[in-house]
Amino acid sequence: MGLLSILRKLKSAPDQEVRILLLGLDNAGKTTLLKQLASEDISHITPTQGFNIKSVQSQGFKLNVWDIGGQRKIRPYWKNYFENTDILELAELLEEEKLSCVPVLIFANKQDLLTAAPASEIAEGLNLHTIRDRVWQIQSCSALTGEGVQDGMNWVCKNVNAKKK
């Protein structure tokens, strides 16, 4: 097996690209989550004006994660990013047509705080069990310590296939 054949093999199976939208209220920890995914330093985070984007490799997928500012003023712009989105991570947007059938992952962040609500409580609060038209998952995590973040991404990789079929 030569170098050439390896190269050819790589070329014939390009990484599948997945677009992930990360949405949420301001100070929810979206940018921290993004930096944690990209294994970057999380101690210098400033509020997001506009958006950040990072590409992460995971299980043969190229995850393009879009982190969009959560400030009320910016929320009207969210809809510009809905086109071609494969995974979504917030609940209120389920009504949006452009996003129909897009799997939803909800991160119940800041679980490192004692006062954080457990994932089950949040699921109830958001009435997640009423969602019928798409797959969804709630994942408790802490973007600060990185706990649970990878589990969430594993779920993403598994469910992207389901959506594409």
Partner: peptide, 22 residues
Amino acid sequence: WCEIGFQGDDPKTDFRGMGLLG
């Protein structure tokens, strides 16, 4: 607070990574 460009009704969370320096 939004009038001077903070995100919400309490600026304290906006200082984050820059702390008091901001």
